[in-house]
Design a binder for these strands. Sequence first.
DNA 1: CGTATTTGACCCGCGC
DNA 2: GCGCGGGTCAAATACG
Length: 282
Amino acid sequence: MEDVLGNSSFLANSFPLQSIFDSSCEGDKFPLGFMELLGAQDFTSTPLFDIAHQFPSLETDPPMKIESPDAFNLPATPNTSSISSASSDAVNDEAVKVDEQEEDQQKTKKQLKPKKINQKRQREPRFAFMTKSEVDHLEDGYRWRKYGQKTVKNSPFPRSYYRCTSTSCNVKKRVERSFTDPSIVVTTYEGQHTHPSPLMPRPSLGGSHLNSAIAAGAAFGMPMQRAQTHYYHHHQHPFGNTLSALGHDGFSINAGFLHGQSLLKDPGLLQDIVPSHMLKEE
DNA sequence: CGTATTTGACCCGCGC
DNA sequence: GCGCGGGTCAAATACG
């Protein structure tokens, strides 16, 4: 296809991210989508989800705004392109706090027991990426182990469930194809990696756009494989410090686990993949 | 032999 | 209460 860049707008128009979350929210009623889904789990003790809490108004905002691909400078192959957004559910901090340890135990005992006290179940931050790709499983720098697959209602394509193979990292992701456009792969990440990417040990080595993009993408758990990653976000981004990136539309990234800190320290590198206004905007 | 994938069963939440 | 759909587990299997 030659309309690679055009794909972004195409995706935005024909496949509003909201619909993704609408369908990925299971039975839960998340009229707002992203903010509700903003989880309150703090793997790294970075309370960025609290920050997300401060932006309750999403319904009044337009569903999404797509970022110009140029802003990312991704030299990815024109084969694929992806857009992204994030979500998480909003829960009571207290409930989470109290729940965390208990939940940890319950987690080990799997879900045989009720893990939620009186709140919605999922509380981990979630990022959804729509990637125009022919391969289902995009390489994002982490190793994933498939633990399940389910058929998706209203879709001929199954949804696959992956879990990060790192023992201390319980990041999960779902991969499914859009039934409206089979060439689009929707990848939803849940949770945050507590470790650097095993496949991308030195992000700032090459200094090329690709390298930094991949490094950052890997850090964020974004699909990299021949994919052009576009981020959906709203106008403002409380990008307070380098440890947490967060768009108030729910695009939240906890980069606390990032060991390749040089990447975050150097705005230039980040600029390679993150829109400039996203870095400094407040 | 160790690791990853497959796949049926099970559990849970939600809507009716 | 029941059925449905989503999410996860774990035994079996495949693969290196």
